[in-house]
Design a protein around this nucleic acid. Structure first.
Lengths: 151, 151
DNA sequence: CTTGACACTATAGCAACTACAGGGTTTTCA
DNA sequence: TGAAAACCCTGTAGTTGCTATAGTGTCAAG
């Protein structure tokens, strides 16, 4: 199949597929005479695997490691289990951080219940002073802040 | 004060301060004869404000808006309240997404309790098949995925 | 007076894409 | 048949919020 068909089959933008090839997640595709990429079903499955992992917010490096195990099915998968455990840990920590954040934001919001002059706004003043909670540390490894991916 | 002192006072790397100036969050600083940046206490407070907002995971664009209100204290702060409300919304949605993610990962993890051959690994096989949950949508606006900021 | 800590600019890099510009090819359908 | 639409190609630059380097200049201490 051509790249556009693959894009539909794996629900992935064409540019992203080419990007994955460029960074070595997908092997270089075969080409037609006119230089179009041609994919097999195995390659489609590989892309779907990658997209599932991305859906679980793994980094491309983590996925690279998983793919190595997928490519050598006789090897021991202990490292896979470890990777998933660590990833769960990162996500859990991030949830705690965001809950803390949410609490701080709600506290802040209460300081200005209705619109008034900015100079009297409890929110702006609260942000100038020291907030009550701990700041985010970002020590968790690779779990993003509060803002969603573009995807 | 010089940039190094400011960096300590606001607990912010020097490079980040220069970066904030470059992107217009901080006004261009005054300079000594030898071209060193010199900061007032008002500028230090502005930086601290920015860092508090970043600690609450706001984007630089959001902070820019807040700073505009801080700079014109006679204006009505309704938009500030809206911004915070929306931000709280983004964080809440992100928490839900990450909880869903955590659940999916834990389910996945259970499929391979102990190390064995990768070919038989339930995790790798689970990732090849369709996961039970919904994929992440990333529609929430600007709340990041599961990976932490470098901060 | 030299060593070290600090300051400056400019540029490149990170993740994981996304979005062009500026071409070529293939399909469709009138 | 022929033209337009839809697809494909490469290469490069942009996104966010920094971080890190290279190469240079300035200043304070001993």
């Amino acid at each position: 199949m051509k790249i556009g068909e693959l894009a539909k089959a794996a629900n992935t933008p064409v540019e992203t597929i080419r990007y994955y090839e460029r960074v070595g997640l997908l092997h270089d595709a075969a080409r037609t005479e006119s230089n179009y990429r041609i994919y097999s079903e195995a390659q489609r499955d590989r892309l779907i695997f990658i997209r599932h992992c991305r859906g679980l917010d793994m980094t491309l490096d983590e996925i690279r490691l998983l793919l190595r195990f997928k490519d050598s099915p006789q090897e021991n998968c202990a490292q896979v289990n470890t990777l998933i455990d660590e990833h769960i840990g990162h996500v859990s920590v991030r949830i705690k951080e965001l809950k803390n954040l949410e609490r701080q934001l709600k506290t802040l919001r209460k300081t200005c219940r209705e619109a008034r002059e900015s100079g009297q706004c409890g929110i702006l003043n609260g942000l100038s002073a020291c907030p009550d909670g701990e700041p985010l540390t970002g020590k968790t490894g690779h779990v993003h802040g509060a803002h969603a991916r573009k995807g």
